[in-house]
Design a binder for these strands. Structure first.
Lengths: 218, 218
DNA sequence: TCATGTGAAGCAGTTCACAGCG
DNA sequence: CGCTGTGAACTGCTTCACATGA
């Protein structure tokens, strides 16, 4: 069993969380930790930590716990973070520029190597150290930089044609921040990031208990 | 049973999705639809649509389906979207400005009414029609505008003190876009939005199958 | 008849509790 | 002894399949 069973996105995201906790522990100088103490510190579940980790191999030592640094390195590699992935961001408005300088997008595992836009006032310039190219240069840019991930940060109306250009340029792993739900064709891994839904989720509770909603069940 | 059982975030998010589908159907001129056809069009599950909707009351007509407009209005009200919620965005960098002009944050149900920063070059000005105030004015600003939701869009290092100021100013519903996991005190509804985790999730699959990872189980 | 609304079944993800090992 | 790794129990979400009712 070479770890080939399908891994759930929930587990995957928890592994990312564990890695961040371990990095924090490293910065605090902690070099050994039990699942219980980790759960207490970061409000997680100790049983779940053990199950998640054990799924990929025996990382811990019975009676002792986990070695912080070596577990961090294992997770780092497991998540594919030991190979730097280069990103291209399409759309150099505020959102594109925010993502271009977002720490998590430029940290050794990921690096934004180019911006793309169609506005002649932006193309050919540098925006916060990031060179900006025209969308027509995407294929050449992808090949030259070795980027394998693209981020869509254009207005909703331009998102579909942007996706088409990206796929045509050979990019197959795409994160869409435009406020429209795009559908991926076969062989393309696309994730739609919807920032509005977070707002609806927290705002919902502001309205719970309003009298005029109680009739909804009638 | 006045809809007072706890509703899961998953169901809540699906209701948002249904509402968008219905809005799309309205724009297409469709005025009646079955759960089956809706599932086919938008790649959802018909049984789940019926279950989710039936949980809040009998919205449909047996043998016929759902009335698009009236269902849309019901969901709109159920999600609390019929009362406009005013937002304050703290941090007027690219991210803050991107969110200030994000369509989903300014659409009749939500409206960004003010920006907040501590940079004297930004305070007192308008950035894309949005007036910018100093953090010290938060309490007065909150009371005057009636805003009940705040969005944190400051650098990670400033996020905790920003959260403290917001709570001190009486804001209890907060969306955090800073790349750090904040913990809410009692009575504060806080949601951390982590953009990096989406990147890790799609990038993980680029690394699956790499030879040097196969040993992880050993 | 046709599509909803809904118990029952099925499945996935989480927690429990302890055997096993350092 | 202490803590991991793990089967078993449990919880909650999704899907099935059909009785119900327009």
């Amino acid at each position: 069993m070479s770890g080939s069973r399908e891994i759930s996105p929930l587990t995957l995201n928890r592994l990312s969380v564990y890695l961040r906790c371990l990095r924090d522990l490293q910065s605090l100088g902690v070099d050994r930790i039990s699942s219980q103490e980790m759960a207490d510190r970061y409000h997680l579940s100790s049983a779940q930590i053990r199950k998640d980790l054990a799924y990929f191999g025996e990382f811990g030592v019975r009676g002792v716990g986990y070695d912080v640094s070596s577990l961090a390195e294992r997770l780092h590699a497991l998540l594919g973070l030991d190979v730097e992935q280069r990103l291209i961001i399409v759309g150099m408005g505020h959102l594109g520029r925010a993502l271009a300088s977002y720490p998590g997008f430029n940290d050794g595992s990921f690096r934004v190597v180019a911006g793309v836009d169609i506005d002649p006032k932006k193309v050919g310039r540098r925006m916060g150290h990031l060179p900006v190219y025209h969308r027509d240069e995407l294929r050449e840019l992808t090949e030259r930089t070795g980027a394998r991930i693209a981020v869509i940060a254009v207005p909703a109306a331009a998102a579909q044609e942007t996706l088409d250009s990206l796929v045509a340029a050979g990019l197959r792993t795409i994160l869409n921040f435009a406020p429209v739900h795009l559908r991926a064709s076969d062989g393309v891994r696309l994730k739609n990031v919807d920032m509005r839904i977070h707002l609806e989720e927290i705002a919902f509770h502001l309205g719970v208990g309003r009298d005029d909603l109680e009739r909804a069940e009638g």
